[in-house]
């Protein structure tokens, strides 16, 4: 069984990201980058399936700047077998990512595509669903448990009302939620081995995908700063202000 896992290069979760001073987007210069935590969970799940003897090959793919090779390499050190890097300087929207992944699916014919449920930078939660639509394969999003049984999989999903168990036919798209597993760290011998694993480079154009953005970012600005409070003279003034200024009571 072949598994395709996608990883996204994002600002490290510890970093406090700020808007650029000209409001054209987040300032990512000099910011520490890492694998999106949900993608890391997807990689871990794939590696566990391989350790259980269910998966035979794990292919990791990333799309973005050349620097995203670092995240592909990290996934290889965690246990993926080979990598694909789709390089582009365009800021990618979810649909473009899903189209690129669809092209990779056409080439590689994986049995399962494991993705993070969303990336911590855009917080869109689009790609898995879009890829499901583009491929016409089954999709199981927000997975907190994944069991493979022959040519189908049982997935427990985290939904608003609690947990939902579904059965899907393979090939399928599964997106990882936080509780699916706890990712391992890359051991030193595996980091050294990862250096020797192959990463194939390609571009969206080579894959026949148009990644031109469909939307335009008008402005990125930080949330308004909280203003200092004031002291009120008495309860009457408080009620008055709540009613007429804050308009939270009537």
């Amino acid at each position: 069984m072949k598994i395709l896992v996608a990883v996204k290069r994002v600002a490290d979760y510890n970093v406090k990201v700020r808007a650029k001073s000209d409001n054209t987007g987040p300032d990512l210069a000099n910011v520490k980058m890492a694998i999106n935590p949900f993608c890391e969970i997807a990689v871990e799940e794939a590696v566990r399936l391989k350790e259980k003897g269910i998966a035979t090959e794990i292919i990791v793919v990333s799309i973005g700047a050349q620097a995203a090779q670092e995240q592909v390499r990290t996934a290889l050190a965690l246990g993926a077998d080979r990598g694909i890097l789709i390089t582009t300087d365009t800021d990618l929207e979810s649909l473009a990512v899903a189209k690129c992944l669809k092209a990779v699916c056409d080439n590689e014919s994986p049995d399962i595509v494991l993705l993070g449920k969303q990336a911590i930078d855009g917080d869109n939660n689009h790609t898995g669903q879009m890829l499901g639509a583009l491929t016409g394969w089954a999709q199981a999003t927000f997975a907190s448990e994944l069991t493979i049984d022959g040519d189908s999989a049982t997935v427990i999903r985290e939904v608003d009302a609690g947990l939902q168990t579904i059965q899907i036919k393979l090939p399928a798209i599964v997106t990882a939620d936080l509780r699916l597993n706890e990712p391992r760290y890359a051991s030193l011998p595996n980091i050294m081995k990862a250096k020797k694993k192959t990463i194939d480079s390609t571009t969206p154009a080579d894959l026949g995908v148009d990644v031109a953005p469909r939307t335009t970012l008008l402005k990125a600005e930080p949330p308004a700063e909280r203003k200092a409070g004031i002291k009120v003279e008495d309860v009457a003034q408080l009620v008055d202000k709540l009613k007429n200024e804050a308009k939270v009571i009537s």
Binding site: E70, R73, A77, Y185, A186, S187, L188, I191, A194, K195
Partner: peptide, 21 residues
């Protein structure tokens, strides 16, 4: 000769993860 900066940095990432966790 078998090493690279990428390997150094990846090793330190693992060290940091282990230290934090």
């Amino acid at each position: 000769s078998e090493h690279s900066r990428e390997i150094f940095d990846a090793s330190l990432r693992t060290a940091k993860t282990i230290a934090e966790k």
